[in-house]
Design a binder for these strands. Structure first.
Length: 573
RNA sequence: CGGGGCGUAGCGCAGCCUGGUAGCGCACCUCCUUGGGGUGGAGGUGGUCGGAGGUUCAAAUCCUCUCGCCCCGACCA
């Protein structure tokens, strides 16, 4: 393609509302434009990258034996009422009415539609297992769309649904999808990790998320420095200390701590380490009760873990300031477990402390030298906190490290949730009717594009991995309008590269060299070839990879061969 | 949905407090210049100041309402 036929709308200045680097660069490079909150147009340059990701996904899904379908974006309410999600899904489901006032929704996901299709079409175990996927636009009316296409309301997703007569078959497809996802993200040139994930409301069996590692990621993931263990911090178990609790040595004392509330203030004021203090949080319990949750001062409460406790009200909610006063007779900054007449649940690490500091349930006062079982009843113990860097890995091997990640994929053993609600059955080999078992497998295709940029950029712009770059190579002629030699040599190379199957862009705009360089650096095309009078005398062109600091001369005659091999090596890498 | 902020030319912003001619940089158009890292110069196009109502001789500016967007907390690919 030639730039004269391509909409190149690069921006020098960064639009004010773009917060993360991928959003800024996608706008600046002319890949996307916003139409409404969380709703974007993909311009030609952006669409090329999106299509490349899509093609890799399609390729690998087909390779794994999945079949492509395309389901409607608009779905009738009846199906959602049947599965029970018309009520449960909440305001995130975009509901619409047709001219006859019939209810529809714009699909945020397609379990209902696929299950409806399969229950009509699949009769026999002989037709299973089967895995169907589509690459399609979804709409989720997110509370807060942000970060450009990273968390848009309308986005492109690959979703797949598999059907089985038994668990073993589901396990097998699940493993195949796990491998397939690894292949997909590797081919996209991404640094990623599969991690164990929360199975949420569906519960049970198994779920993995695939995270692209990046500073701007919205999730924290924990992984072992020695084993393969990796899990979302939401889920990662904080295991109990292996040593016995130290003996009670100090006397409990009451100390005035005027205007000291936070753990940081208290530990500085009393000159004790935060890990020798306890933090007490009051939350809503079931049946209008209040429950005290206790974690070590240097730890953070994990509300997802807390919410799973039977004593805790769902959804998880902190107690109001008034409720705190009512049960503890003080404000939040002075809470402690001693003397509380409500259930106390302590994190494993908090329960392991001896001679600790905590609030005295009296404003401006704290207690030191406190011990469980002596000064206050032994608490109920549970895993309540977020793991922190250096914690032992739950699988017993090594220590945990924590990094931020962008969730680009999620695979899930659904089980019979939808198939039983919607009565999707088939006959097994004994002629008995069985409810099919399902798996589902998602990839945020548009999010993959953004996450690739988060991971691959510099101060000049995007640095695309070869496999998903909008163009693999770009030809920049220097002063082509004045030099017929340059124009001619460039044209010849352009034809040769096309013939060699390389996705090449020829910049035939009448722009100054600096403008071309700056635009192409911003857009991030990996392989750059500059054709100029200088090199031509020696039969050379200049080659530079977007990652290289310096360009180097290559004989024109060997360029096609050189590029072909450079591109295939980087594909492997 | 709660809390904070912003709507002035395609983009980035000033002007608003203290009402009186709508401005700057980039982009865009024309001409000259330059021609290997966003050349330099001259001239030019483009805005009912988000919308509605009000106060006033006079509103981008003050008041009320409304719409949109962005940022901080609960969702997810």
């Amino acid at each position: 393609m030639r730039t004269s036929q391509l909409l190149i709308c690069t921006l020098k200045e960064t639009p004010a509302d773009a917060e993360v680097i991928s959003h800024q660069l996608m706008l600046r490079a002319g890949m996307i434009r916003k139409l409404a909150a969380g709703v974007y147009t993909w311009l030609p340059m952006g669409l090329r990258a999106l299509r490349k990701v899509e093609q890799i996904v399609r390729d690998e899904m087909n390779r794994a034996g999945a079949q492509e379908v395309l389901m409607p974006a608009v779905q009738p309410a009846e199906l959602w009422q049947e599965s029970g999600r018309w009520e449960k899904y909440g305001p995130e489901l975009l509901r619409i009415k047709d001219r006859h006032q019939r209810d529809f929704c714009f699909g945020p996901t397609h379990e209902e539609v696929i299950t409806d299709l399969i229950r009509r079409e699949i009769r026999s175990y002989k037709q299973l297992p089967a895995n169907f996927y589509q690459i399609q636009t979804k709409f989720r009316d997110e509370i807060r769309p942000r970060f450009g296409v990273m968390r848009a309301r309308e986005f492109l997703m690959k979703d797949a649904y598999s059907f089985h007569t038994d668990e073993a078959s589901l396990d097998q497809t699940y493993r195949t999808m796990h491998e397939t996802y690894c292949r997909i993200f590797s081919r996209c040139g991404l640094n990623f990790r599969p991690v164990q994930a929360d199975t949420g409301s569906i519960g049970g069996e198994g779920s993995h998320e695939f995270h692209v590692l990046a500073q701007s990621g919205e999730d924290a993931i924990a992984f072992s420095d020695t084993s393969g263990y990796a899990a979302n911090v939401e889920l990662a178990e904080a295991i109990a200390p292996s040593t016995p609790r130290p003996a009670a040595a100090d006397q409990m004392k009451s100390i005035a701590t005027p205007n000291q509330h936070s753990i940081a203030e208290i530990s500085a004021f009393l000159n004790v380490a935060p890990e020798q203090t306890l933090k007490t949080l009051l939350v809503k319990g079931v049946d209008n009760t209040v429950v005290a949750l206790v974690v070590r001062g240097d730890h953070e409460l994990n509300t997802i873990k807390a919410e799973k406790l039977e004593q805790i009200e769902k959804p998880f909610t902190f107690a109001s300031a008034d409720a705190i006063r009512a049960v503890a007779n003080c404000d939040a900054g002075s809470l402690g477990p001693v003397g509380l007449k409500i259930p106390v649940i302590a994190d494993r690490a908090a329960a392991h402390l001896a001679n600790f500091v905590c609030g005295a349930n009296q404003n401006g006062m704290h207690l030191t030298g406190v011990n469980w079982g002596r000064d206050v009843a032994e608490p109920v113990v549970a895993d309540l906190r977020n793991v922190v860097e250096g914690d032992p890995s739950p699988d017993g091997n090594g220590k945990l490290q924590i990094q931020r990640g962008i969730e680009v994929g999620h695979i899930f053993k659904l089980g019979k949730k939808y198939s039983s609600a919607m009565n999707a059955t088939c006959l097994d080999d004994g002629g008995r009717s069985v409810v099919m078992t399902m798996g589902c497998y998602g990839i945020g295709v548009s999010r993959v594009v953004a996450s690739a940029i988060e991971q691959n950029h510099d101060d000049k712009g995007i640095v695309w991995p070869d496999a998903i770059a909008p163009f693999t190579a770009v030809l920049l002629p220097m002063n082509a309008h004045k030099s017929p030699r340059v124009a001619e040599a460039t044209e010849k190379l352009y034809q040769d590269l096309i013939a060699a199957g390389i996705d090449v862009l020829l910049d035939d705009r009448k722009e100054r060299a600096g403008v071309m360089f700056a635009d192409m650096d911003l857009i991030g095309i990996p392989h750059r070839i500059v054709v100029g009078e200088r090199g031509l005398d020696a039969g050379n062109v200049e080659y530079k990879h977007r990652r290289d600091a310096q360009s180097r001369d290559l004989p024109i005659s060997s360029l096609v061969e050189y590029l072909t091999s450079a591109i295939s090596t980087s594909r492997k890498a």
